[in-house]
Amino acid sequence: MKLFDYQRADTPEQAAASAVAPGTRFIAGGTNLLDLMKLQVETPERLVDVSRLELAKIETREDGGVTIGAMVPNSDLAADPHVIRNYPVLSRALLAGATGQLRNKATTGGNLLQRTRCYYFYDVATPCNKREPGSGCSAIGGVNRILAILGTSDQCIATHPSDMAVAMRALDATIVTVKADGDRRRIPMAEFHRLPGDRPHIDTILEQGELITHVELPSPPPGGRHAYRKVRDRASYAFALVSVAAVIEVEDGRIAKAALAFGGLAHKPWRDPEVEHILIGQTPGKALFEAAADALVRDARGFGHNDFKIPLARRTLIATLQDLTGGR
């Protein structure tokens, strides 16, 4: 581990201001950042510890929505009665992630910003455009079983590993930040994470020094049925090969609302309006689900080892829809 300066922030504004210099990183739970620092994948000059900021509350707003402090541990968020009742997809996604010990430490903000699990990203002995721009992508033509099939570029085929973020994407969450100059921003989940394009080293649209203070969930979708289905290589302590966060509402025998987000497929939590569009207003049934699944993977591209994700994503979506609607 490289030597670094360490500073503890007292307020969000102060934290943001003191992180304006390049080479500064916030540290929250540390469950991802510290691993990366030990391997020197991340070599910050300075850490600003935000873990003690008073951002660990889950509050219900007047509109019935929920505001989640960025320091709320994953375990607490998953166990919050309001979240369990009104946003079960989020609670389930959180519980599908990592392990009990990690969830106790991992924070809401840190979870959104965890880095990819691409093998090559974790090893400074190999080229990787995300770690070292311009060095090349080892995963293309290499071992890529766990990597992306949607939204990839010829520079990077990494996935975003979070489960929580997939549920938040389905729930249309908003991320609230404070910037180094004290300005606040509200960023829709849809815009928060990026696709790799030709700058895969940039995961999100956050600026240097910009601190996540809260995540807002809109007022709960009434009557919808929720599911988070995670397909993985072992029963726990494994990242998603494919995951689906689904909130579906059926009214008078027709699908009234459908929010579907996917993990394990892309550089960001994936959501495709066309998939939802195909479903909305229709009677649940197998042919319909197949059409939606076909749309989901229409532009999918495998890289050899991960080709199986294409049929897997299809099947997982269809089964999830069957489950939630009873449509066969």
Partner: peptide, 13 residues
């Protein structure tokens, strides 16, 4: 899992 191009073991944790 070894990378067949370099002999590097990729899943080593």
């Amino acid at each position: 899992l070894h990378d067949g191009r370099t002999g590097k073991l990729v899943n080593r944790d």
